[in-house]
Design a binder for these strands. Structure first.
Lengths: 187, 187
DNA sequence: CCCTCCATAGTCAGCGCTGACTATTTGCAT
DNA sequence: ATGCAAATAGTCAGCGCTGACTATGGAGGG
């Protein structure tokens, strides 16, 4: 995934140095990925060895030297190739919560329920944030691109909603089916 | 996550060697995780250094020597500690499809739509498989544990449904909003 | 004019993970 | 008896990633 993002950014926004790519990513796709700086440099180096980008040392004013990366023809091909490979959509998630519930017999059910309740509000906050970001970002985008970005946002939204629904139904399940009679808590 | 699974398995099913743990995982939690053999050995070694498990070489019949791992008191504490830390539920997914749609201007919309259509049926197959596995597995489980495993299955089910819904609405969005007029394909 | 803080630009050791490999044993058909 | 796949039990090199670090430049306050 990382190389696709880097090549795509270099294609769309022109030649950049590592740190600048980091900022471009932060400004444009922070909602979908969180690629760390060392990861960026790692892949830039690798892609240079592959001939997908070309590096040029540059000094601007009194600023320290920087390495500007430009996408090559070979890089454009690799980008398209990688993107087309992504057309083979797959989904096989694993959730940390799975382990939690698989071994839930070692835990206190009432405590789990309390956590799930705060989790529901967390998801609600995430959903609100997503909607806010979508409005803020897609405002100044050309129509075609806004549609695509909208698709990404709706993807995330649907999964956050799934997460919220799951937490809510789980609370109910634990309250009725679980050994909730063990909840002789204080009060 | 891996250490929690390994310690939990050793707790619930008793002392085992690496390969045996692999089988136990495959038989019990293959639907939620896919921990590879080398990963198991890596963590067993690490946990032995930490004093969470104790190793004992053993020979049975003509079979080659095996290293049996037993959970220690310290390991039991580490397990509970790790499990409780999982109570801090979090969710911040990234999807490969995000990159696909962020750079979708480099691709043919009609091709994307075709892929999404097969993706919908893939998700339907996954949903059917999940339901089948749930019935098969939870049949011979004690009530309490069945509830918990049911929670895990419903978690996965909800996300597969989200994925299916997303694919369906995306198809519609692309057909109406996208530049589908560029679909002067053969026929 | 100095001091501090943030932004800039990048490096590096080390962690977690796994594909690909070794080596032996058992089951089973021929 | 023989051959051959599958199961058993485990190892190892190397990949991708990132927390923590270095080092310099400008901005602003006192």
């Amino acid at each position: 995934m990382v190389p696709i993002y880097l090549l795509g950014i270099l294609l769309r926004f022109g030649p950049q140095h590592g740190y600048q790519i980091k900022r471009t990513l932060a400004e444009n796709v922070a909602d979908f990925t969180s690629i760390k700086l060392p990861t960026i440099y790692y892949h830039l180096e690798k892609m240079e060895r592959e001939g997908w980008v070309s590096a040029k040392r540059e000094t601007e004013g009194t600023r320290p030297e920087r390495t500007i990366f430009t996408i090559t023809q070979k890089g454009r091909e690799a980008f398209l190739d990688g993107l087309e490979r992504q057309l083979a959509l797959t989904y096989r998630p694993t959730f940390d919560a799975d382990a939690l519930f698989y071994f839930a017999d070692h835990l206190d059910f009432s405590q789990i329920i309390r956590r799930l309740e705060t989790y529901v509000t967390q998801m609600e906050r995430s959903l609100a944030e997503i909607r806010r970001h979508q409005l803020a970002i897609s405002a100044d985008l050309p129509q075609d691109h806004r549609v695509c970005v909208g698709i990404i946002f709706s993807h995330h939204t649907l999964h956050y909603q799934a997460e919220k629904t799951w937490a809510q139904t789980t609370i109910k399940a634990l309250l009725s089916g679980g050994n909730t009679d063990a909840q002789a808590t204080d009060h």
